[in-house]
Design a protein around this nucleic acid. Structure first.
Lengths: 236, 236
DNA sequence: TCATGTGAAAACGTTCACAGCA
DNA sequence: TGCTGTGAACGTTTTCACATGA
């Protein structure tokens, strides 16, 4: 649904596919490290818990660069996926809230890799402001608007408790973030153009337990093959 | 796809709906706190960023208990959603890895609420083992198998770095968890019947940035209305 | 021979539009 | 009149099945 006059865009990549690409990429990167050079849709699919035909459809949307009879060149595939996901971009991220969760995020492996970089970390607790946390020095939330032009965040991460989350979100929107990723267990309101994504332990647990509840405790292997892992997506 | 002879199960609830129910529930609970008594599908939809018809479809799957011309009784609706999600269950959860992330999880609001309870927290770091973290005392991973029968975890949460994640997962599977929720940036292998869900900052960021990249920086309100927030679900 | 790439079919999920009821 | 509940239309995603090419 990202309509518009895009001109020379190579192909429309469905949202469902976009959600799987990072998973493929991670698997392929791991395989590269293990010394593998090529992979079949069958292999990749079984590692990603995805039907092989789906893998082929997904990859064919990026262009046709598999070799019939052999499979895909892993290194090349990784490069193509990265290109499709737009790794070349620069995505400054502001993290607000440096409790345990915020600290974990700021230190996360694979955060600064990829186009993402932490443009700033913010809190209001005087005990935390000024502290060095991982790669950054925590600043007061009031300084959010004072970031250099090149560091103006495109994405805001809300890692506060539920109570201040809406206020923090408003502050992020005010400095122009175009997307919010929130870990706070609260429902947020943002203006329509801002992308909003909730990451939530209790929601994940509830969805999981729903499926567990209607699954026999000791089920037969056959029926289980059909039970795919609850996806990554919009789901998202 | 949870086929089988379930007999008197009320209705099949699609996965997409299941992923939205906890969101509705959270909004409704907040509205209750604000003193609201009823809600229309329009109101609930706009808060959840979901089409009103979809809200009605979702809720009608739980049974028909709206009042035409008025809307839904919020308290009753919350109860129905909870019943559908199976709140009545008991879901012991084992958390492995008590770095910043594990600490955040163990202390999370809304963890122990709902049927979930922390049956145990495990690590291998001698500096952490024995420590009181939030509501629990951390035990050594080797003691995972020693939990009382009533505390045998149904769900395992992996909050370790990528390197030991597979090993930890194997240990969890060995003690009989039926679902794994992992925050480790690694691809895991589990036997087919075990549900597996990845929660991953860098994947979320990548998906978000993909949509941002093909979205005009200062887009018109009309086009944006179509850009729904990247969902929760499976996520998804 | 083996595995990709892709039309066509099936399954699934969303949205529309309106009948039905308070 | 206002809002739910739901068939039917629509759009998207998945899966099948096989022609194609290394």
């Amino acid at each position: 649904m990202v309509g518009g006059a895009e001109g020379s865009s190579p192909r429309r990549i469905p949202e469902a596919t976009v959600a799987r690409l990072p998973v493929y990429e991670r698997i392929l990167t791991e395989m590269l490290r293990s010394g593998d050079l090529t992979v079949s849709s069958e292999q990749l699919g079984s590692r990603a818990r995805v039907n092989a035909a789906k893998v082929r459809k997904d990859l064919s949307l990026l262009g046709s660069f598999g070799t019939r009879g052999t499979g895909y060149d892993i290194a090349f595939l990784v490069a193509q996926i990265q290109r499709a996901l737009g790794v070349d971009g620069d995505w400054p991220v502001a993290v607000v809230g440096l409790g345990n969760l915020g600290r974990a995020l700021v230190n996360a492996e694979g955060f600064s890799s990829r186009g993402f970089r932490i443009a700033g970390a913010f809190d209001i607790d005087p005990a935390v402001v000024g502290q060095q946390v991982g790669p950054v020095v925590v600043r007061h939330l009031d300084e959010l608007g004072l970031l250099e032009v090149g560091d103006r965040p495109t994405i805001g991460v809300v890692a506060t408790p539920a109570a201040p989350a809406q206020q923090v979100t408003d502050a992020l929107v005010a400095v122009g973030v175009r997307a919010i990723l929130t870990f706070a267990p609260a429902v947020l309101e943002v203006p329509a153009p801002v992308l909003l994504r909730y990451v939530d332990l209790s929601i994940d647990l509830q969805v999981m337990s729903f499926f567990l509840a209607r699954q026999p405790a000791e089920p037969l292997a056959d029926e289980l093959a059909q039970l795919r892992a609850v996806g990554l997506t919009p789901r998202r």
